[in-house]
């Protein structure tokens, strides 16, 4: 079964539109949505969650059209955690245990201890990292099968980011658990994801298994003459520098005489976006 299935999702705004987005997140997998600011990542996530109303398209969660009952099984962390500012952790617990049918107080307070979140302080006094940890604790304390995270690591220091990535890794040890996560901090997603989806200008540029992407693509550094020797279908994009030509290529179409270097997801994304422009 697929955790999320999106078909031809379209949402139009003045000056921006998300166009015909289709993607599938298989159950038990982690998909990273990568894109620059304004690429359409948040609109996609908000459409899945019913925060915005799509103009067209179909969204299915666990094989059924998205509905409110499913939200018991979905843990959500948005870029700003929307907990009332004056609430302390006990008050948050009181609200959540009356909201989610599967709420586990024990799990929630275990996370509070692990994250060292103060018991009596108001949420508004928390740092950005503490707020995000609180959001993640809420999302993980009601036995969710699917986590949807919109920029959970943005604005956090590297240590806090690493902690969050570690927690998400723990969540996915259960093979029925899935995650859809958006970020423009590509290195975080590279550590975590099975699938990578590139978004640019409201369109899905590419959606592929991460390992296949890394196997499929590579970089070569050569000269302008060297590049002419290659079949044009092997080259995805090239950049002329003072030292020669840097090209993003399909590994299997490059002769063995060329040294193909591995590519990172971040390099691949930046290259593709620049080529598109």
């Amino acid at each position: 079964m697929n955790a999320i299935e999106i078909r031809n999702l379209t949402k139009m705004y003045k000056g921006f539109s998300l166009t015909d987005l289709s993607l599938t997140l298989p159950e038990g997998c982690i998909m990273g949505l990568i894109g620059e600011n304004g690429a359409g990542k948040s609109t996609t996530i908000k459409s899945i969650l019913g925060i915005v109303r799509p103009d067209r398209g179909e969204i299915k969660i666990f094989g059924e059209p998205a509905n409110n009952k499913q939200k018991n099984d979905i843990g959500v962390v948005l870029d700003e955690v929307g907990i009332p500012e004056l609430f302390n952790i006990h008050e948050v617990n009181a609200v959540m245990k009356n909201s989610f049918t599967n709420w586990s107080e024990g799990t929630f307070f275990d996370y509070m201890k692990r994250f060292k979140l103060p018991e009596k302080k108001k949420f508004k006094t928390f740092s950005k990292g503490m707020k995000m940890k609180m959001g993640i604790a809420v999302a993980l304390s009601h036995n969710a099968k699917l986590l949807i995270l919109d920029e959970p690591t943005s604005g956090l220091d590297p240590v806090a980011r690493d902690e969050i990535v570690e927690i998400l890794n723990e969540f996915t040890r259960d093979e029925s658990h899935s995650i859809l996560i958006s970020s423009h901090v590509v290195s975080d997603l590279e550590k975590l994801c099975d699938y990578i989806a590139f978004m640019h200008n409201g369109r899905l540029m590419l959606c592929e298994e991460k390992d296949r992407l890394l196997e499929q693509y590579g970089f070569i550094n050569t000269t302008e003459e060297g590049i002419k020797e290659l079949d044009s279908s092997a080259i995805i994009g090239k950049k002329i520098t003072n030292w020669g030509v840097e090209a993003l290529v399909y590994r299997d179409k490059i002769p063995h005489s060329f040294k193909v270097q591995p590519v990172t997801i971040e390099e691949l994304f930046v290259f593709m976006v620049k080529e598109e422009k």
Binding site: G50, K69, K71, L78, E80, V81, G82, S99, F100, K124
Partner: peptide
């Protein structure tokens, strides 16, 4: 007013309420 400031209005939508 407080809910708009704290983004609770968005957050409550992602909880099982509608």
């Amino acid at each position: 007013i407080h809910e708009e400031q704290s983004k609770w209005r968005l957050y409550s939508i992602v909880m099982p309420y509608g």
